[in-house]
């Protein structure tokens, strides 16, 4: 990377952080809550990208790791009186352990088989949660409104010197995005590490990578585990954001949504994945805004998604790479 491009990257990151910090001053309380949700999705999609973007493995089961993170936080806060903030890393670590435990045997499978197996896990998640109702509260889930460990209670209000009032939604926003930016930096570091290069080598050619001394199983398992960590953290934040967990909050749709967010944001990109997260939050709203007749929002959502994939097969990230890439690669597109 040339010094200029490096400077451009740093500038871009600083700008990104500045926008994130400043945004709540410009938007309503309600919007702050939505943007907090975008931050949460962003984390989960960043994690999915570690797996899919680097190893080429498509997982449809990351909603299950989110559920694991969410329930870890909910149970620790509601039943053990723990403070919500401390449960976030624990949720991530537990999900990471589960990711490794699932990944170690499952990564023997090739792409589509693994994708469908993870899909099965996503389908089974709400059923299994309901079955173990002693721990999970069954279909009703766990309510955190009354729990003592919750930091961002609805009464949470802080008035800043400038007269700006920070509500509990702003608190959730900053919580989600602080963690998102830290994990974003971690993802960037992974990308540029020796480990990241090994992962990309696996994606491009498993056999050649193995022949060059990359130990496939350990790398893939670690990638799976890291991506599960991200999903666990996102799930934990989701529980704090919603003040509750229910099995219904983790249907197959959520796992599928993460994959859609990744595809829209652009596989292998980092910052543009935030656009994928925003897509997940705002497109359903836009569709609802056009018509509320049964089925119509889904038709709009599906049609926009398909059109987007046709126009931008590499997602928003692909578009940005195309714009900022060297001129020659545009004139002579590969194949």
């Amino acid at each position: 990377m040339t010094a200029f491009r490096y400077a451009l990257r740093v500038f871009g990151f600083v700008l990104f952080v500045a926008i994130v910090v400043y945004l709540p001053f410009r938007i309503s309380d309600f919007r702050a809550s939505e943007f907090a949700l975008i931050g949460i999705y962003f984390i989960a999609i960043l994690g999915l990208n570690v797996l899919t973007g680097y190893t080429g493995v498509i997982s449809l089961g990351h909603g299950a790791f989110m559920a694991l993170g969410a329930y870890t936080t909910a149970i620790l806060v509601a039943d053990h009186g723990m403070r919500d903030l401390w449960t976030i890393p624990l949720a991530g670590l537990l999900a990471a352990a589960a990711g490794a435990a699932f990944g170690l045997p499952a990564l023997r499978l090739s792409g589509p088989y693994l994708a469908l197996t993870t899909f099965g896990v996503a389908v089974a998640t709400p059923i299994v949660i309901k079955k173990f109702d002693g721990l999970t509260g069954g279909s009703g889930g766990i309510n955190l409104f009354e729990a003592e460990g919750i930091t961002g209670l609805p009464e949470f209000i802080v008035t800043l010197p400038g007269g700006k009032v920070l509500s509990f939604n702003d608190w959730l926003y900053y919580l989600a995005w602080t963690i998102a930016l830290v994990l974003f930096a971690v993802a960037w570091a992974i990308h540029h590490s020796h480990f990241g290069r090994s992962l990309r080598a696996i994606r491009d050619n498993e056999i050649a990578a193995a022949a060059s001394g990359v130990w496939l199983a350990s790398h893939k398992t670690l990638a799976f585990s890291i991506s599960a960590f991200y999903a666990g953290v996102a799930g934990s934040l989701l529980a704090i954001w919603a003040f509750s967990v229910q099995p219904g909050a983790f249907p197959v749709d959520r796992s599928i949504a993460l994959l859609v967010g990744l595809a829209v944001g652009g596989l292998g990109s980092l910052a543009p994945l935030a656009a994928g997260a925003a897509f997940l939050v705002f497109l359903p709203q836009l569709a609802q805004g056009i018509s509320k007749a049964p089925g119509v929002p889904a038709v709009i959502y599906g049609a926009v998604l398909i059109a987007l994939m046709i126009v931008l097969p590499m997602g928003v990230g692909g578009l940005l790479r195309w714009i900022t890439g060297p001129l020659t690669s545009r004139l002579y597109p590969r194949s």
């Binding site: 498509i58 990744l262 089925g295 929002p297 599906g302 398909i306």
Partner: peptide, 21 residues
């Protein structure tokens, strides 16, 4: 592959909505 899979997911959502509509 991810793009094509996402398109079939889009079709899933679209067809489900269209039938409901």
């Amino acid at each position: 592959a991810l793009t094509v899979v996402t398109v079939t997911i889009g079709l899933l959502i679209l067809l489900n909505g269209a039938a409901a509509w």
